[in-house]
Write a protein that binds this DNA or RNA. Structure first.
Length: 293
RNA sequence: GGUGAGGUAGCCAAGUUGGUCACGGCGGAUGUCUGAAAAACAUCAGAUGCGUGUUCGAUCCACGCCCUCACCA
């Protein structure tokens, strides 16, 4: 085996990512970077994958630039990292073949990680039969079940994950899946730029501005349309913004409550994003206002 | 002004027939993370309106005060 060959391979797979919490001007920066070199743009955003969910999720990039990873499923279709990965990966490899730089923009950390680090179990599909069987199980019953099929996995989980039904079900699913040794070791040479504010107290005002803009752009009408078209029991509509809009539309919440709720949810989300990205290897760029880098 | 109801954390809200650290939920803070990730989950912080009395002991009982709501004037 020749190390040089591996290096050569890595050099052929460059990836530039722009990540960070919501409302920091990631899209603007990505568009700026895209102008400087032959490139394609890929969105890493777990809600912009849905067609017709445009205003509330903030699909605000110019119509003249194409962006991949957006509008890949309908709101009533299931979607996960794997769906997104499969939708986006062909374009990334095509870009490499053409000698073009893929630029990934988005705040969904897991999606970016699927590209930069790889997810070993990404292609073990959901086992719907198992999932519906396990639906009523308590946490301790799920732990028992996992212990029977993969005790090491259970003991390796931390306090938080061990109490998380969703993670336990997935662990069981992986344990009993027919093992395909599909090692997805990443060969990408990725650079991840993260945008953050110097002062965390800037998020609130940035988010407030954004929420008002989306309301002015027809967020309520969009939510009404989706509600009448699909009904309210869809995971896609549990997204921030939609969930307060739904209760507002049903008359269970006043307009100011709805706006407050929306802003508060976005703020909490931004904090969770910061926590996630702190653990990843990100080159942080601190900004004062969106797009002022 | 009169009558009735009520004042428990930033908000909502249990409860103690008087007895160690007062149930929860939301919100908040800090985190976890390999197919739901704008998700799910974990840990932590925070309260008995004010005063006096009865009592070994009061958030609970009594009295006064302040405040809120409803109805009557």
């Amino acid at each position: 085996m020749k190390i040089e060959n591996w290096n050569l391979k890595i050099k052929q797979q460059p990836l530039l990512c722009v990540v960070g919490p919501t409302g920091t001007g990631k899209t603007a920066l990505a568009l700026e970077l895209a102008k400087k070199q032959p490139s394609i743009l890929i969105s890493a955003d777990s809600r912009q994958v849905y067609r017709g969910m445009d205003v509330v999720t903030g699909k605000d990039h110019p119509h003249t630039t194409h962006i991949y990873g957006v509008d890949i499923v309908d709101p009533d279709e299931p979607c996960s990292v794997a769906t997104w990965y499969d939708a986006v990966m062909p374009h990334i490899t095509a870009a490499w073949d053409d000698g073009v730089l893929p630029i990934v923009v988005g705040g969904t950390g897991l999606y970016v990680k699927a590209l930069t680090s790889g997810i070993g179990t990404l292609h073990i599909p959901p086992n719907n039969h198992l999932r519906s069987e396990l639906v009523g199980y308590s946490v301790s019953e799920l732990q028992d079940k996992l212990y029977r099929v993969d005790p090491q996995k259970l003991t390796s989980m931390n306090e938080s994950d061990r109490a998380n039904p969703r993670r336990l079900v997935r662990a069981i699913e992986i344990a009993i899946a027919p093992k395909k040794l599909e090692s997805r070791i990443s060969l990408l040479e990725s650079k991840v730029i993260g945008l953050r504010y110097y002062d965390d107290s800037n998020y609130r005002s940035a988010i407030e501005v954004r929420v008002r803009a989306r309301l002015a752009a027809g967020a309520v009408e969009e939510a009404k349309r989706l509600l009448s078209q699909y009904g309210e029991n869809m995971t896609s509509l549990s997204a921030i913004g939609y969930r307060s809009l739904m209760t507002y539309i049903k008359g269970e919440m006043s307009e100011t409550e709805m706006v407050d709720r929306w802003v508060a949810d976005e703020l909490a989300y931004a904090k969770r994003q910061i926590v996630w990205f702190k653990k990843q290897s990100v080159e942080w760029q601190f900004v004062d206002k969106p797009g002022t880098i």
